[in-house]
């Protein structure tokens, strides 16, 4: 299953890299002669409301989807893991400080913060990333902390400490790898969520500026055609699901492998 997932994601990676070769037409070229054309041999996935080729847009959209998904989880994960592990491992005032930071961050309604930040900084993917880094870390932090609390009282950690290993060494060598399992599972889910939340931003009108081919925007803009030209939102939706499945399967597989190692 892990291999299936990996294959799927790698395939999407290849699609992203080879987009110019795979696309049949310019993803942003409008065509007044082919508005809302259903799927055909000429336009495999049909065309949208301004005559753009949906197949080509889906292909090019892969680039942005991977970019948003992968880059969007990295900083939250790094920040969250660091805070969570330190808090759980050391306890005391470190934990207290981390938990207060968490307490201030968690209650901020996610979309509200993103919208506010988008309003402050202006729209764009980069600002979405900033918002994610500011709020997205809490999930990782809570998971990492919970694991670290459990681990810090375990025999092998205590043993390492009595053997004179430094906290840093123990954290990196023993606690981190063991805490990784739930975090990685969560991260693979998070990739999908980050892509989906990005799409939801598009739904609220605050997404990537046109005419950039981005799946979320394509689905959101295709919504009003849901019963007249289903293909506009269906194919990018399908692409999103297939990419999501890829990451989900990788998550499962990784979790299993890490468990065996332990």
């Amino acid at each position: 299953m892990f291999l299936c997932g990996l294959t799927l994601v790698v395939l999407w990676g290849i699609v992203a890299l080879a987009a110019p070769l795979l696309a049949t037409s310019d993803p942003i070229a409008i065509n007044f002669e082919a508005i809302l054309a259903p799927p055909s041999s000429e336009h495999w996935f049909g065309t949208d409301n301004v005559g753009r080729d949906i197949y080509s847009r889906v292909i090019y959209g892969t680039r942005l989807a991977l970019y948003i998904g992968l880059l969007g989880v990295i900083s939250p994960m790094v920040i969250g893991m660091t805070i969570g592990l330190l808090a759980g491992y050391f306890g005391g005032w470190v934990e207290m400080l981390a938990m207060r930071l968490l307490d201030i961050t968690v209650p901020f309604p996610f979309f509200v913060l993103v919208l506010a930040i988008v309003a402050v900084l202006g729209p764009g993917i980069e600002n979405y990333f900033i918002a994610l880094a500011m709020v997205g870390w809490v999930g990782y932090a809570r998971l990492a902390r919970a694991e670290a609390i459990v681990l810090r009282s375990q025999e092998f950690v205590l043993a390492a400490r009595t053997m004179g290993f430094s906290h840093g060494y123990i954290l990196l060598r023993h606690v981190l790898p063991n805490a990784l399992s739930p975090v990685v599972v969560y991260m693979m889910t998070d990739v999908t969520l980050v892509i989906l939340f990005g799409a939801a931003l598009g739904f609220l009108g605050m997404g990537v500026a046109p005419p950039t081919p981005e799946w979320g925007i394509m689905i959101a803009e295709g919504q009003i055609y849901v019963s007249t030209a289903w293909w506009i939102s269906f194919f990018p939706g399908l692409a999103m699901i297939l990419l999501g499945i890829g990451f989900a399967l990788i998550g499962d597989g990784l979790a299993r492998m890490l468990r065996i190692e332990r």
Binding site: I30, V50, P210, I217, E221
Partner: peptide, 15 residues
Amino acid sequence: IVPGRQELATLYKAQ
């Protein structure tokens, strides 16, 4: 543009 004008913006830009 403000949200909701994306379609028009797309048309204007392309032309």
